[in-house]
Design a protein around this nucleic acid. Sequence first.
DNA 1: CATAATTTACAGACCAGTCGGTCTATATTT
DNA 2: AAATATAGACCGACTGGTCTGTAAATTATG
Lengths: 182, 182
Amino acid sequence: MNTRERLISITSDLIRKKGYFGTGINEILKQVAVPKGSLYHHFPNGKDELIREAVYYGGESQMHKYGNALRGKPAEEGLAAMIDVMVEELTASNFEDACPIAAVAMASGSIDDDIRAACAKVFVGWQNDLAGYLERRGVDNAQQKAEELYAMFEGAYVLSKAHKDVKYLLLQKKFIAVILNS
Amino acid sequence: MNTRERLISITSDLIRKKGYFGTGINEILKQVAVPKGSLYHHFPNGKDELIREAVYYGGESQMHKYGNALRGKPAEEGLAAMIDVMVEELTASNFEDACPIAAVAMASGSIDDDIRAACAKVFVGWQNDLAGYLERRGVDNAQQKAEELYAMFEGAYVLSKAHKDVKYLLLQKKFIAVILNS
DNA sequence: CATAATTTACAGACCAGTCGGTCTATATTT
DNA sequence: AAATATAGACCGACTGGTCTGTAAATTATG
């Protein structure tokens, strides 16, 4: 893994925990053990460019995890496995790691709009991915239901993190069938 | 409105837009037009104490708005009016103001746990308030449904802000009845 | 009632540390 | 030689926080 990739990867980890404003370039450099010149060589536009790339990176990495959870399972079972991924990430990180995109998106409006747009693109990608999965399983109105399911998951992710209690995520399993059959 | 209240009120506005790390005390002082000594007189424990109070303040102020929207309406209509409150706040602020609590809660895990606990308390308060409203309208399993509804709303709030598009919030109206009748 | 003592509140200069970013210099690779 | 990448000293602006001082309000005491 080269310097550029390591910078993006570590930044992705940090913004997930602390968001845009909470993540400082000095801390990134310290963790990657790279001097400042290297960062500005690979990312001439500085922090904003690096964070934008880290948003895309975190989005793709998360999509792979969800894809693995869904693969080969019927709709209801697959979605429950997706929730288990989120639960596992919260508990493994002592409730520091919730949705890597939401952490940055919350600050949109006060930051470079390219970063907000990157967050939006990642969300759309996730949603299309899930809609395709549902369609292949014969679920009707898949696009709208995928939208709804992600809203549920995002919200439960926030509530579980704030309460340090995964019960808000686990509760969603009860409503998967309700949404799918609606 | 005295100095202490003005500090809390402005801080509440700022953390809603920029979260914990994005809100600096110098900016707060500038907006309130108060010297630093006054802040540390009223809040000897500094930024964390002020933000904790601002979280409670923002939580109560938001609860009143939701309460006004719900009052006197049947369940489905009241919940739709709640969504309209969120939509209105997003558009009026050019998508800067989403959930005032989530903005801070996203950073929990990296900040004083008292602040996270304050966020959790506000969420529980909102949820109990909504559960009571639903119970009074004869909805069964009101507590669980209130939990679910808030998860939906929180998630849609985040998605609408990130996309600069209220459609994610408005979509929730279609699912209110689905949840209430489940 | 007057005034002294005490508390509450406001005021801002100042501090060490960190912020994101620029700059020049040196390796390393092609 | 030229392009790419690493290296870190350095910069002004800003961070949250401390400090000393003053003004105003409140309480105690004669």
